[in-house]
Write a protein that binds this DNA or RNA. Structure first.
Length: 833
RNA sequence: GCGGGCGUGGCGGAAUGGCAGACGCGCCAGACUUAGGAUCUGGUGGGGUCACCCGUGGAGGUUCAAGUCCUCUCGCCCGCACCA
């Protein structure tokens, strides 16, 4: 058979090839992107990692996906900003220090060096000149500077509030970092503590953060819905209920002012200070005991979700502003101090929670909304009615549809000065201070005379001292470091103490994407011209676990910076791709499950090209990916197949022009058609859908076709230019996926410059045209025959041709043809009876 | 409970309403080999009297035609969860 196959094929030695090109790319700086040029820009960013020690498969997947996008866009003619850095502050470094005595800085930098090496092994096309770590003072200086900007605009403030305390991490946490009542990092149940802490006023941006979600057409619906729920906008009214015998009111927030007439009790949260004030003397003991029990319960039970509603009567009453009725005041465990006003009006007939509470304590259930065609009875109804209807038992408002009554009653209350229209958000301010060492110090000093004073910008950075002893005391070592703590007041020059809390690391990651545009800028956090050139990020890629944390904080930061005139974008990330997890045996890889696959191991055994190819081929990016050792081998086999194919035809294509000329016929034409069809398929798959798995499968089809072309067609009948074109296009199409082997084979084809500087191949629409197509012939929707027809045949001609077919005539004989559907190029369906 | 997603061969996964299962893995057979866990070729959803029939979680429906659209239903995964 194929005499032209060399007797001794050179083997595909990935280790040598990858090593060689890694060095060459670095020497030539081919991934350096200029700050400015005439070419269109594209900012491709993957979420930068915490330097935990080693890359894991999730990182590999994340960065492989990003690299395909970056390389593809580069080939498409864009200047692609594709940077990498390190989210380098955080607890693990400090915990390791306490456990093993390694200084956090050393541990972190060692990890960064390891992981940088692993990323380079992977062959990701980063512009490494732009690398930075957030724990470097050249970076956190500007993190502190940004804190001051927030502070000066009243968006950073210190306040005493009930906060989430993780006893294991010995620090407070933001609401976003508490999941089901437990610490998002270590899963320890959090405690409530009343502490003075630093907050960012993210709530001031609640409306814009919500409204602008609509602009994010390139974000997954799922993430937008999660943010929408997290922000939690509700429209309603705040209503005042005067307390009987006191010169005070209970204020409640409700989304259903239309049910105001149905209020039969008032409920306030156990933590609410008002509870103790209104309680009648003879109830004090019982109420006190109840509150104590409820508080303890609520800490424990926060993890378990819904629990039995319980309450206790305070002996006090308030007055319904709508009808003047006296309403008993209860303290109830289902009322949340953190939401609304911490007080709720009880409308048992129209709220399921209130209904359950009322039935338990024998409180009246008064229907004030009657649905059309039904008649609810408060004494017998089995559950609350929350649907639409007309008002009853509400005096002048009777008969109104409840939707209208919401407005009317709100207006009525406004006129009486007893209420007003109000919008409430579930979102709370972002608590950013941490009682830990390894973070950016908050640039504030406390002076006995001047109070809290911001550190002047000229005095930044407030350096984090690095010669620090770590003891497992659970206290920040900064507290005992007099050289750090003792300072002078910037205002009066008197003695002062530094803030010893550091900032939440999410603060560091809320602005890093701006810094990549000018990573060494010393006159500001970034150079505005460069930020204007590159932002917004065109494509952001990372795990969905940051759907509300990092992504919401970053949106908030960007809006603040926009308002402060520091950037010109209002949203940081135009398109967001949330990649799925990497699973093994159906479960997320974890040490405890013992199903971890180490990237280093796979890279050593199969090389970067194979590793990348597998994580891209095994599933579409958004979906979870099931790890398969055999699947990896399959990808390795494919690359070997590519290697053998290309090296075996090098001789044959050496002298050939790179584009075939003249009218091709037969096998040469079909080979060329396949090449162009595959170019189109892969282009569409990458560009419009990020379906890298189907793009790779198309490349496999091209390779299969090329093997047939090589092995089944005698050499004399093959046009070497057709083969050359197929080889070169194949390499170009694979270049974003497998950058090493393609550059090597590209060089062997006689090219002297890197394949990664080449433009993406275009397909020739002319070449896609088939002259003959196979169509399907159906009878009553079932495939009964196939035939080959000219591609440009009209539906009528096609129909006639089909009916001439012997087999079809046979099958149709004696039956009435009711209808014939002719779809050009596809099928003919004959409907018979 | 609310919101989002997903159910297709032995497995990962493909299919603008138009041939279900592309591509890969695995498996079966053959070729070449001292050998092969290398490579190449062919086959591979189930049933069958070889006409065909049945098959995309299940039941209906729309359509000449449904994995795809509609209604109902079951199961799994993720997020939020007493939000007034």
């Amino acid at each position: 058979m194929p005499l032209e196959v060399p007797a001794v094929e050179e083997r595909y030695v990935f280790a040598e090839i990858e090593e060689k090109w890694r060095r060459k790319w670095e020497e030539d700086g081919i991934y350096h992107v200029p700050d400015f040029s005439d070419r269109p820009k594209y900012y491709c960013l993957e979420m930068f990692p915490y330097p935990s020690g080693n890359l894991h498969m999730g990182h590999v997947r994340n960065y492989a996906i990003g690299d395909v996008v970056a390389r593809f866009k580069t080939m498409r003619g864009y200047d692609v900003l594709h940077p990498m850095g390190w989210d380098a502050f955080g607890l693990p470094a400090e915990n390791t220090a306490i456990k093993h005595g390694v200084p956090p800085a050393k541990w972190t930098w060692d990890n960064i060096n390891t992981m940088r090496g692993q990323l380079k092994l992977l062959g990701v096309s980063y512009d490494w000149r732009r690398e930075f770590a957030t724990c470097h003072h050249g970076y956190y200086r500007w993190t502190q500077w940004l804190f001051l900007q927030l502070y000066h605009r009243g968006l950073a403030y210190k306040a005493k509030a009930p906060v989430n305390w993780c006893p294991s991490c010995t620090t407070v946490l933001a609401n976003e970092q508490v999941v089901a009542g437990a610490c998002e990092r270590c899963k320890t149940v959090v405690e409530r503590r009343e502490l003075e802490q630093w907050f960012f006023r993210i709530t001031a941006y609640a409306d814009r953060l919500l409204a602008d979600l609509k602009k994010l057409t390139g974000w997954p619906e799922k993430v937008k819905v999660m943010q929408e729920n997290w922000i939690g906008r509700s429209e309603g009214a705040e209503i005042a209920f005067p307390i009987v015998g006191m010169d005070e009111q209970i204020r409640v927030f409700t989304t259903r002012p239309d049910t105001l007439g149905g209020v039969t009790y008032m409920a306030i949260a156990p933590e609410h200070p008002l509870g103790a004030r209104v309680t009648a003397p003879e109830h004090r003991a019982a109420v006190g005991a109840f509150v104590e029990r409820a508080r303890r319960l609520s800490e424990l039970d926060r993890t378990t979700g819904e629990h039995e509603k319980e309450g206790i009567f305070t002996g006090a009453y308030c007055v319904n502003p709508l009808n003047g009725e006296k309403v008993p005041i209860y303290i109830a465990n289902y009322v949340l101090m953190e939401y609304g006003t911490g007080c709720v009006m009880g409308v048992p007939a129209h709220d399921q929670r209130d209904f359950e509470f009322a039935r338990k304590y024998g409180l009246p259930v008064r229907v004030v909304i009657q649905p059309d065609g039904a008649s609810l009875d408060g004494d017998t109804m089995p559950e609350a009615y929350t649907g639409p209807g007309r008002l009853v038992n509400t005096g002048e408002f009777n008969g109104l549809p409840n939707v209208e009554a919401i407005k009317k009653i709100t207006q009525h209350l406004e006129a009486q000065g007893m209420g007003r229209y109000q919008v409430r958000y579930r979102l709370r301010d972002w608590l950013i201070s941490r009682q830990r060492y390894w973070g950016a110090p908050i640039p504030i000093v406390y002076c006995d005379d001047c109070g809290a004073v911001p550190v002047p910008e000229s005095a930044l950075p407030v350096l984090l001292p690095e010669n620090v002893a770590f003891k497992p005391t659970g206290k920040s070592p900064l507290l005992d470091l007099s050289a750090f703590v003792n300072t002078t007041c910037p205002t009066c020059g008197g003695p002062a103490r530094r803030e010893t809390d550091t900032m939440d690391t999410f603060m560091c990651s809320s602005w890093y994407y701006f810094r990549f545009t000018s990573p060494r800028e010393e006159n500001g956090p970034w150079d505005l011209d460069r930020v204007n050139r590159w932002l917004p990020v065109d494509q952001y890629i990372g795990g969905v676990e940051h759907a509300i944390l990092h992504l919401l904080y970053s949106r908030f930061f960007t809006k603040f910076l926009y308002d402060a005139g520091l950037v010109k974008v209002e949203e940081p990330f135009t398109n967001l791709l949330t990649q799925g997890m990497v699973l093994k045996n159906g479960a997320k890889m974890s040490k405890s499950k013992g199903n971890v696959v180490s990237p280093e191991d796979i890279l050593t055994r199969f090389g970067a090209d194979t590793t990348r190819l597998f994580v891209l081929f095994a599933a579409p990016p958004e979906r979870d990916l099931e790890w398969s050792d055999q699947g990896v081998e399959g990808c390795y086999r494919f690359l070997q197949r590519v290697w053998r194919l290309v090296t075996s035809v090098l001789e044959e294509i050496r002298e050939a022009p790179d584009t075939p000329s003249g009218a091709l016929v037969g096998v040469n034409r079909s080979m060329r058609r396949l090449t162009h069809q595959i170019i189109r398929k892969i282009t569409v798959d990458i560009e419009t859908r990020f379906n890298f798995n189907t793009a790779i499968s198309a490349a496999m089809e091209l390779v299969n076709g090329m093997y047939q072309f090589r092995d089944r067609i005698p050499a004399v009948d093959r046009d070497p230019a057709v083969m050359r074109e197929a080889v070169e296009k194949l390499l170009l199409l694979l270049a974003p996926f497998a950058p090493f082997i393609t550059d090597e084979l590209w060089a062997r084809c006689g090219h002297t410059t890197s394949i990664h500087r080449e433009p993406w191949p275009e397909y020739d629409p002319e070449m896609l045209v088939e002259d003959q197509v196979e169509i399907v012939v159906q009878i009553n929707g079932r495939v009964r025959d196939r035939m080959t027809v000219p591609a440009d045949i009209t539906p009528t001609e096609m129909q006639e041709a089909v009916l001439e077919q012997p087999r079809i005539r046979e099958l149709v004989a004696g039956k009435e043809v009711k209808k014939v559907i002719s779809v050009p190029g596809k099928l003919v369906n004959i409907v018979v009876r």
